[in-house]
């Protein structure tokens, strides 16, 4: 049998059996992690109320599986003498310093995410320039599905080195802000009542949470801002759209004037 001797680490013996065994462990770990994810996701989907708690276990389970795999591979090799340990730490230090710094930062970030859970699968978060639903917390990166249905892999180190905005923090409900605009001469009280009723009668409203309607005066229009919780994260955009569509329809039916798109465009540019 061919034997590769790594003199750099003090005579550590890596033969073909070791490599095959390591490969088998990696494959088994990968399959186990995939299976755990599928099973836990299915369980979370079936358990409407406890779904977030079950999803919380997904990254932790993956870390445990991959951690056990790494230990199984490296454990037998790391019965190191003093000289071997010194040599290995030198190699590791050089690797971290030159090539693998980012990789280790991401792995460390993934571990922190799994332990501290600043977010979990299903949450709506904003990291760096990216906003979306967390669909997977991986060992190296977190995958987000954006409102445009893009899948973005965000390196885990961003979650521990920068701010993370989490819109729902594991809850199945989240705050959605909907804005509508009317002209300064509109009946603001009636317009606010219309917006509030459009929110209260939406099928997506979480009725056990507060609903707030605010009015802000701009020089050429008034903003009516409704803050309410959506009862299902997947309906985040459908909720805003539903409220806007029905409120605008009621504005038109009741003769409540809305500003022209040009006025809003100019205001946005300013």
């Amino acid at each position: 049998m061919a034997v590769v001797t790594a003199d750099a680490v003090g005579g550590l013996r890596i033969d073909a059996g070791t490599l095959v065994g390591a490969l088998a462990i990696v494959v088994v770990a990968y399959l186990l992690a995939r299976a755990a994810r599928v099973v836990l996701s299915a369980l979370a989907d079936r358990a409407t109320d406890r779904g977030p708690v079950i999803r919380l276990a997904i990254p932790m389970t993956k870390f445990l599986i991959y951690g056990a795999a790494i230990y199984s591979i490296l454990g037998p090799l790391f019965r190191l003498s003093q000289a071997q340990a010194l040599a290995f730490s030198g190699v590791l230090g050089a690797a971290l310093g030159f090539g693998l710094k980012d990789l280790f930062a991401n792995l460390l970030g993934g571990l922190v995410i799994a332990l501290e859970t600043p977010y979990q699968v299903g949450d709506r978060i904003e990291v760096g320039d990216h906003y979306g639903e967390v669909v997977d917390v991986g060992v190296r990166a977190t995958r987000l599905r954006t409102p445009e249905d893009d899948l973005v892999a965000v390196p885990n180190y961003l979650a521990i080195t920068g701010p993370v905005a989490n819109a729902n923090a594991g809850d199945s409900e989240m705050l959605v802000v909907t804005e509508l605009f009317v002209t300064p001469d509109a009946d603001i009280a009636r317009a606010s009542a219309v917006v509030e009723e459009a929110v209260l009668t939406s099928r997506h409203l979480a009725t056990d949470r507060p609903v707030t309607v605010l009015v802000e005066a701009e020089p050429r229009y008034r903003t009516i801002r409704a803050k309410a919780y959506v009862n299902d994260l997947s309906a985040e955009f459908a909720f805003g759209s539903d409220v806007t569509r029905r409120a605008l329809r009621a504005f038109e039916a009741e003769g409540i004037p809305t500003p022209s798109p040009q006025i809003l465009d100019e205001a946005e540019r300013r």
Partner: peptide, 14 residues
């Protein structure tokens, strides 16, 4: 009886 008929889930339904 049946006072739940006194509302509708639409704007103006209350």
């Amino acid at each position: 009886d049946d006072c739940h008929h006194l509302y509708a889930r639409r704007v103006g339904g209350f």
